[in-house]
Design a protein around this nucleic acid. Sequence first.
DNA 1: TACTATTATTTGCATTTACAAATAAATGCA
DNA 2: TGCATTTATTTGTAAATGCAAATAATAGTA
Lengths: 144, 144
Amino acid sequence: MGPLDSYLPYLLNRAGARIATAFNDEVRPLGATLQIWRVLAALREQDGRRMGDLSDTTSIEVSTLTRLVDNMEQKGLVARRRDAGDARAILLHVAPAGRRLTQRILPIAERYEAVALAGFNAGETEMLKAALRRLYANMDGLTE
Amino acid sequence: MGPLDSYLPYLLNRAGARIATAFNDEVRPLGATLQIWRVLAALREQDGRRMGDLSDTTSIEVSTLTRLVDNMEQKGLVARRRDAGDARAILLHVAPAGRRLTQRILPIAERYEAVALAGFNAGETEMLKAALRRLYANMDGLTE
DNA sequence: TACTATTATTTGCATTTACAAATAAATGCA
DNA sequence: TGCATTTATTTGTAAATGCAAATAATAGTA
């Protein structure tokens, strides 16, 4: 293996960690965290999701997610409801405070997108995003 | 903000998390972790580094790194030496067991690079890596 | 030289995280 | 229907994480 900064997982982690840390610092004054934002963003995309589904989309491990949701529920950001059709499952819904918080974080999220992609034109941006999706899909090759 | 999977930090985190989890599972039987590998890889690139330097290259927070290094030192993977020129600083060196572990992990790391980039040609690969470096650099715009 | 500010690392402590086991419900099938 | 298997979530528990404060040494300057 050559130099570290030509190793893809390294570059990926480094970029991700930097954005994550900065974003986290920024939303903390709002009483949020990156993880909370991830859940809210997932619910914004589609409300009433199962824990397992949320775990998949947010990349937060289920047992961690359970406790994060406990916390968010206490803060009134979300509400658990037992799935009527399948009583094993929970459907998580945003609550009013969660919607308000989402609205406050959205402009920050948009700013991060813009800053990260500063100097990228539309074609480059799309190419990068496509590559990241492809990369994610490629990992199927390992986990079966 | 549009759909989640067009949001760059999301794509970045998702890809990174997936690789990280899989890699971690794979090196665990060797008595290693992803974080341990990060330190070893950084030392392989250049031995005798300061804690702060290591923190920067590995994206591991310094206080976390201190304890990780405690652990690695106990396992005989690395050794701390006080910097002769500046007694505040520690220079971290690989130890024989660390070198051996590095050799065992290297092929795994190479495989991950290959799997992640399956189907990418040389040009696409270089473009992606360049984009990730640029993205990282772009974040200077926020943290000053 | 003494004093203040800066830099490098570690430690205190509360929170977050994740593996494994436990619980609870649905499904498949004898 | 009854029982074993699978699926969904939570809980137990130990380890990892990260902010803030503490410690230690250097550098800058009056």
